[in-house]
Simulated scan of single mutants.
Amino acid sequence: MSLLETLNTDLKTAMKNRDKATLATVRMLKAAVTNERIKLGHDLSEQDELAVLATELKQRKESLVEFEKADREDLVADLQGEIAIVQHYLPQPLSEAEVQDLVNQVVADTGAQSTKDFGKVMKALMPQVKGRADGSLVNRLVKAALTK
């Protein structure tokens, strides 16, 4: 079942259960996926769907930090609920050790020797971890692997 079909099913369930928070979040996710599909002009691949979900999650996490700084506890609680709903649709995240193993493998496969090869490593690595690992974590681990 595609992500859009899953979102439609969950949308109906949220309507039946009168779950306003889930309903609003699923509607936002569905709109984001639909907008991306329209922008690209074709159905989304699984990678494209994961990229949309990862973007939505990142936006919410950034907003959460800002709301916490502004001491807006009412908005923080709502946003934490949205984050949990978005994470429900994403695959299980990779641990730091799993990401490190992937980094080591890609560095070996690409023959990267120094930080000059950073772009080559990231280009090969990011499709493997998209939506499953934080980009800043991947960035940090690749830099560490290339500066050894």
Rank of each mutant, 00 (worst) to 15 (best):
E68P: 06
E66C: 00
N35P: 03
E96D: 13
Q105E: 10
E5F: 05
L3D: 09
S45R: 14
G135H: 09
K130W: 00
D117L: 02
K130C: 00
E82D: 11
V33L: 08
K20S: 10
M122Y: 02
G111R: 00
L40P: 01
N139T: 07
V52K: 08
K61S: 14
K148E: 12
V99S: 03
D74W: 10
F67H: 13
N104Y: 02
A54K: 09
R60F: 08
A108T: 07
V107A: 05
F67V: 07
D134T: 04
D10I: 04
A21G: 11
F118A: 03
N139E: 15
Q92R: 15
A24V: 04
P93V: 09
G81F: 00
R72P: 03
L57M: 07
R132Q: 14
E73C: 06
T13L: 14
N17K: 15
Q92V: 14
T34V: 15
Q128P: 05
S45I: 12
A133F: 06
R37P: 01
D48N: 12
Y89D: 01
L3K: 08
I83K: 05
L53A: 04
T25N: 06
K58N: 12
V121M: 02
A51G: 08
R37Y: 04
Q87D: 01
E73H: 12
R18H: 07
K58S: 13
R27A: 13
L44V: 04
N8H: 15
T9I: 14
A133L: 06
T25L: 02
N17I: 09
F67R: 05
G41Q: 00
Q92L: 12
D43P: 02
V106S: 02
K30E: 01
L137F: 06
M1C: 02
E49S: 09
S2W: 06
L44E: 08
A31T: 15
M126G: 00
E49Y: 04
K123L: 07
G131F: 08
Q128H: 10
T13R: 15
L75W: 07
Q105I: 01
E46R: 14
E98F: 11
K39F: 03
G131N: 05
V33Q: 07
A51E: 13
L94V: 03
E98P: 04
L29F: 07
R18N: 09
